[in-house]
Amino acid sequence: TEDARKEAKKIIDNGGSPDEAAKFIKKYGLSEDQARELVKRAL
Rank of each mutant, 00 (worst) to 15 (best):
D3N: 12
R41E: 13
K6W: 11
E20N: 04
R36P: 01
A22I: 15
S31R: 00
P18F: 14
N14Y: 06
L43T: 05
G15V: 02
I25R: 05
V39K: 00
V39M: 06
E7P: 02
R5I: 15
I11C: 13
K27E: 04
A42S: 06
R5H: 10
A4W: 12
D13N: 09
K9E: 06
D19E: 14
L38D: 01
A21I: 15
R41D: 09
E2I: 10
L30W: 02
E7N: 06
D13S: 10
A22C: 11
D3T: 13
G16I: 05
P18E: 11
L38A: 05
D13G: 07
E32M: 12
Y28C: 05
R36G: 03
E2V: 11
S17C: 09
E2A: 11
A4Q: 03
D3C: 15
S31N: 10
G29L: 03
D33K: 10
L38N: 00
R41I: 12
F24W: 11
E37P: 00
A4N: 02
K23Y: 12
V39Y: 06
A21E: 03
V39F: 11
G16M: 10
N14F: 08
E32P: 06
R41F: 10
K9F: 09
E32N: 05
T1P: 11
R36L: 10
D33E: 14
G15W: 04
A4K: 04
R5G: 08
A8T: 03
V39A: 03
N14R: 13
I12C: 04
A42K: 04
K27Y: 05
S31L: 01
R5A: 13
D3Y: 13
K40F: 14
A4S: 02
D19H: 08
R5K: 13
Q34E: 13
L30P: 00
E32R: 02
A22G: 03
G29Q: 02
E7Y: 10
S31I: 01
K26L: 15
K26W: 06
D13P: 03
F24C: 15
K10A: 11
S17Y: 04
K27L: 06
A4R: 03
I12Y: 04
A42H: 05
A4M: 12
K40Y: 14
E37T: 07
A35Y: 09
K6L: 13
D33C: 13
A8I: 14
D33G: 06
D3V: 14
D13A: 13
E7W: 14
T1E: 12
K40P: 01
A21W: 15
K6N: 10
K27A: 06
T1M: 15
K40M: 14
K6M: 12
R41H: 10
A8P: 02
E37I: 07
D19N: 06
R41W: 14
K10Y: 11
G16F: 08
E2H: 10
I12H: 03
I25G: 01
E20R: 05
D13Y: 08
E32I: 11
K6S: 08
Y28I: 00
R41N: 10
L30K: 00
E32S: 07
F24N: 05
K40E: 13
T1L: 15
A35D: 00
T1C: 15
I25W: 08
E7G: 05
E37C: 15
T1H: 14
A21V: 13
L30G: 00
E37H: 06
L38Y: 05
D3H: 13
I25P: 00
L43W: 09
V39L: 11
Y28T: 00
Q34H: 03
V39P: 00
L43C: 11
E20Y: 11
E20T: 05
R36N: 08
K9T: 05
A8F: 10
L43A: 06
L43V: 08
D3E: 14
A8Y: 08
E37R: 08
P18N: 04
K23V: 09
L38E: 02
P18V: 12
G16P: 02
G15E: 03
L30I: 07
P18W: 11
G29P: 00
K26Y: 08
G16S: 05
K27Q: 09
I25H: 02
A42G: 04
I11A: 04
I11R: 04
K23C: 14
V39T: 02
K9V: 07
L43R: 05
L38T: 03
Y28F: 13
D19M: 09
Q34F: 06
R41A: 13
R41P: 01
L43D: 01
E2D: 11
E2N: 09
S31Y: 00
L30D: 00
I12N: 02
K9A: 07
K26E: 14
Q34A: 09
L43S: 04
E32W: 13
A42D: 01
T1D: 11
S17K: 04
G15Q: 04
D33T: 11
N14G: 12
D33H: 09
L38M: 08
I12K: 03
K27F: 04
A42Y: 14
I12S: 03
N14V: 05
R36Y: 12
K40G: 08
A4D: 01
A22D: 02
D13W: 11
Q34V: 09
R41V: 09
Q34W: 05
E20P: 03
A8D: 02
R41Y: 11
G15I: 05
K23G: 09
G16H: 05
A4I: 13
R36T: 07
A22Q: 07
L30H: 00
K6C: 14
E37L: 10
S17I: 05
L30T: 00
S31W: 01
V39D: 01
E32F: 09
V39H: 02
Q34P: 00
E32K: 02
A21D: 04
G29I: 02
E7L: 13
D19I: 07
E37Q: 10
D19W: 13
G16N: 04
K23S: 12
I12D: 02
E20A: 07
K23D: 13
V39S: 02
A21L: 15
I11Q: 03
K9I: 12
G15P: 02
K10C: 14
A22P: 00
Q34T: 06
D13E: 13
E37K: 07
A42N: 03
D13I: 08
